[in-house]
């Protein structure tokens, strides 16, 4: 295809991506380097019989006008990145100097909003992803053994947790685990503790969110693995059986190596999706016990006084996180492509 033809074909798509993905990323960087204008202070001199006193007061009108004229605010360099709401370097240095053992330092760290969100985001990403792969594989192996009449309906039901709107899916579960909901009541009965509430403790909230994550993503892994199982070479299985491989050995040495490329694919997609965990926290109203990077950006924009610079700085840090997460994959794909070209 000629360069010019290629250009015209790709133009609408490329324009949309440049205008609404690339430029917003630039806009985020610019916003993160600015900070809202300070309040305009007017100093008035009051002279009375006992001499003059200087009085400073906030000129609300001028402040509002200045802020409306320049909503971006004034240039602040990287200061937002290092403030308490983000990287909090000063606070960390302070906590390190006064540390009370390594655990004490970590709990200091956990009190800082950015690190609290980062801790949950990373834990969620790196626990949910392998669990999704494991559960998906087990379901796929199980469904593969079903009589073909049952396969269709089973796949139908299995797809539901995945295609459901994330916010709606988490709300449905949230109502069920409510202390007065059906799962909440059942758990109280099982553990014989009428006060048990899954919303109360941070640990239980984390577990609930991760259970939701596995529930909603496992179908994706299942479907991909299931399709992969249809293409397992029956000759190799046959050969393995003749050589005396047990059932487990067949799965371990024939089926799993065949599915390995799919594991890479699912991990890639799941890492990307789990890293932006967000709707579940809104749905489960879990923000007191668990926040994610995406959630704190949302909270900054939702608060009464929208903190654009703070949201933008967190966004930039999140994008850097995504880049770190993706680098190995991108490098590998690029090498493969070059290998093919040569």
């Amino acid at each position: 295809m000629r360069h010019k033809t290629f250009f015209w074909f790709i133009l609408p798509s490329l324009a949309a991506m440049i205008l609404f993905i690339a430029l917003p990323l630039v806009s985020v960087v610019v916003q993160s380097l600015h900070i809202e204008h300070e309040q305009v202070i007017v100093v008035t001199e009051n002279c009375g019989p006992f001499g003059c006193t200087e009085e400073s007061s906030v000129d609300t009108e001028a402040t509002a006008q200045l802020r409306a004229e320049q909503p971006l605010g004034r240039f602040a360099g990287l200061s937002t990145y290092f403030d308490r709401g983000h990287l909090a370097t000063a606070e960390i240095a302070e906590a390190w100097r006064n540390r009370d053992g390594f655990g004490g330092f970590l709990s200091e760290l956990y009190n800082l909003p950015f690190y609290k969100a980062l801790a949950f985001t990373l834990t969620y990403t790196f626990l949910v992803t392998p669990l999704v792969i494991l559960l998906g594989l087990l379901i796929a192996l199980g469904v593969n053994r079903l009589p073909s009449l049952l396969k269709g309906p089973t796949i139908f039901v299995s797809l539901l947790p995945m295609i459901i709107t994330p916010l709606i899916g988490s709300l449905i579960l949230f109502w069920m685990i409510d202390a007065q909901g059906v799962i909440g009541k059942t758990l109280q009965w099982v553990f014989d503790d009428p006060e048990l509430s899954l919303k109360a403790s941070p640990a239980l909230t984390w577990i609930t969110l991760m259970v939701y994550g596995v529930w909603s993503s496992a179908p994706f892994a299942f479907v991909v693995f299931y399709a992969g199982l249809q293409t397992v070479n029956s000759d190799s299985l046959e050969a393995a059986m003749i050589d005396g491989a047990t059932r487990w050995q067949q799965i371990r040495y024939v089926v799993i190596p065949h599915l390995m490329p799919l594991v890479v694919f699912i991990s890639l997609i799941q890492l990307m999706d789990n890293f932006r965990v967000f709707e579940a926290i809104v749905g489960f109203s879990a923000q007191a016990n668990a926040t994610s990077l995406s959630y704190i950006i949302y909270a900054d924009m939702r608060s009464d006084l929208t903190r654009f610079n703070s949201a933008a700085a967190t966004s930039v840090l999140t994008v850097i996180g995504v880049a770190i997460l993706l680098t190995p994959v991108l490098l590998r794909t690029w090498r493969d492509f070059k290998g093919k070209a040569v």
């Binding site: 993905i21 917003p24 971006l72 932006r276 933008a312 966004s315 794909t333």
Partner: peptide, 20 residues
């Protein structure tokens, strides 16, 4: 490849770029 990177961007980070 660039599209893959864009695919990975959390939507809310883009939204924070649009809002202002």
């Amino acid at each position: 490849m660039i599209a893959l990177v864009f695919r990975a961007m959390p939507h809310i980070t883009l939204v924070s770029g649009y809002l202002l």
